[in-house]
Computed example of a mutant assay.
Amino acid sequence: MARRTPTGAAVLQPSVTNAITEAVLDELAEQGYARLSMEAVAKRAGVGKSALYRRWPSKQEMAISVISEFSLAQIEVPDTGSLRGDLRATLDTVMRWLTHPGSPGSWPTWWPRWPAARSWARSSRPWSARRSANAAW
C-alpha cells in the first residue's frame, strides 16, 4: 500500500508565506511597527492568525524575519571587474532597495524607535562581521 503524503498544518505553503510577507511589508509601510498587528496582517494576507503563529511566535519575530529576508533578497554582490564598476553597481543596488515598494521612506521614522531594532541588529551582526572579514579591499 502506498504511503499518503501528510496534509494539514504541518505543511507550510509557500504561497501563503509570500502573501503574509507582502502583507507585513504593506502594513509596516502604512501603519508603522507600533500599529502593526497580527490581526491586520492576517486580514490583508487573507489567512487566519494561526497561519502567522505557525511561522512566527510573535509580532516582533515576524517583523524581524520578514524585514531580514526582504533586505537580504535585495543584496547583490557585484563583481564587474573594476572598482569603479563595483561601486556603481553597489550604489545601484542600494537605490533599488531604497526605492522598492517594500522599503518605504517611512522606515527611518519608526525604525529607531522600534525596540526590536536592537535585537535585529544583534542578530545580524555575525552576518555583517562575516561579510567584513571576507571582503577583499
Rank of each mutant, 00 (worst) to 15 (best):
G81R: 03
V66Y: 04
W56M: 09
M95F: 08
M95R: 11
Q74F: 02
E61P: 01
Q74W: 03
S58D: 03
L52G: 02
E76W: 02
M62L: 15
E61V: 10
P78N: 07
I75Q: 11
W56S: 13
S58V: 01
R84P: 00
E76A: 05
K59I: 05
S68C: 09
P57F: 08
R54P: 04
S68T: 15
L72G: 15
P57Y: 08
S58P: 00
I67T: 13
D92N: 06
Q60H: 09
D86M: 01
A51F: 04
W97K: 06
V77N: 09
T93N: 15
A63E: 05
L52I: 14
R96G: 12
I75V: 14
K59E: 04
R54D: 11
Q74V: 09
E61K: 13
R55M: 12
R84V: 12
Q74A: 13
A89S: 03
I75Y: 10
R96Y: 12
A51K: 07
Q74R: 13
R88L: 07
R84S: 09
E69C: 13
M95Y: 10
V94Y: 04
P57Q: 12
S82D: 02
F70I: 11
L87R: 11
T99E: 08
L83G: 13
T80F: 04
W97F: 07
L83A: 14
Q74N: 12
G81I: 01
L83Y: 08
G85C: 03
V94G: 02
Q60S: 15
W97G: 03
W56T: 07
A89N: 00
P78S: 06
E76Q: 11
T99P: 00
T93H: 10
R88I: 10
S71T: 15
